[in-house]
Design a binder for these strands. Structure first.
Lengths: 205, 205
DNA sequence: ACCTGAACACCGTTCAAGT
DNA sequence: ACCTGAACACCGTTCAAGT
């Protein structure tokens, strides 16, 4: 049988080129992807339908390369720790990708599956049914903000430290670069879970 | 004395035009601002220095038009409620502006002043000094995520509800559009404050 | 001091034309 | 079926030239 003519393009090649460009420059574009792959710009449209499509493929790529284990047998708080940590760890190797993801609606099935596991864990916590969706939003807010923190610049607050003494104290007493983000995540994760636990109505046996 | 020649342009006019365009279309551009004001595109550069500059002016505009009251006399948890609520309420009238703000570093002095008040409240909570900065990040993550939720589309989760039963339950048991976002914010705010309270070491008197 | 017009180096998307 | 080249309608920014 005739072997297939060597195809110049594939979805995977496009996604890899886009990710490489984001890691190196903070963004991607059709002309730069095409140049990277040695094809014409318009040929990309044979594999993908739009810029948004590429962004969603990048999101899926992040999640499939870092799969989260099953949490349905774990206690609800342990499940939340695993899921939120796994979610955030996806972004760690590609921090510059985060800004492209946060402003676009999630369509990737892999991510929605993780939200299903999150919801199951929250249901097991004993929250009122009406509080599960708000708690899910809360977890989402936290994970999103934590991921965005990967791209935060070193010197967040400008000059004039004397005008903001408390802020200056807080910044001075905290480590820099990756440790700062890591400690914020650990503190936030535990505070978040403890906070959700306080919203569970105590059942009187 | 000669009254000043009617000036065609001002920073305020540029900011107002940009905000109007964002509210109506979700974005602004130099050509569209210029057309809105009846001037040439290049003349904008006499008042502002870059697109980023306009974004930062928009951020400051949001905050100055919705000033937060002094919270230095309030108990720490009440101060947090006021500050976080005030912060989020700034975005409510202009939801489509949020995506432009979250991916750019804060430089506006008004916002930094609010972070100072947040830090003071967290110090009053009794947290360890080393935990103030992480707690500040947690509050920041929450406020950011809550603001981004203003632009979330109605139908977040795609088709195939049967594949995600828990998620479908959660979505079905929650209201839509503005009430959903409001309930998520209220639940999250209280869970957040309760969670931070659990991280305060109990002093034995 | 302020404004204009033209130019430059980019974008995403479409489409007729080739093989 | 896949790829190309050209075209279209946009961007942000600079700069010489005018008043």
């Amino acid at each position: 049988m005739p072997r297939p003519r060597s195809t110049l393009l594939s979805v995977e090649l496009i996604v890899e080129a886009a990710l490489k460009l984001v890691d190196e420059t903070g963004d991607f574009s059709f002309p730069r992807i095409a140049r990277e792959l040695g094809v014409s710009q318009s040929s990309l449209y044979n594999r993908i339908s739009s810029r948004e499509h590429i962004v969603e493929l990048l999101r899926a790529h992040l999640f499939t390369s870092n799969p989260t284990p099953s949490t349905t047998d774990a206690p609800w708080d342990e499940a939340l720790r695993m899921l939120i940590r796994g979610y955030r760890d996806c972004f760690a190797p590609h921090p510059r990708l985060v800004p492209l993801l946060v402003t676009q609606t999630v369509r990737a099935a892999e991510v929605i599956a993780m939200y299903e596991d999150l919801t199951l864990a929250l249901e097991r916590s004993g929250l009122d049914a009406a509080d599960v969706a708000p708690a899910l939003s809360l977890v989402d807010y936290f994970a999103l903000g934590a991921a965005l923190d990967f791209t935060a610049p070193e010197e967040v607050w400008g000059p004039e430290p004397e005008k903001y003494p408390a802020l200056t104290r807080a910044v001075r007493s905290s480590p820099s670069a990756p440790e700062r983000v890591e400690r914020a995540f650990e503190f936030g994760l535990e505070a978040l879970i403890a906070g959700i636990a306080t919203r569970v109505k105590h059942k009187v046996n």
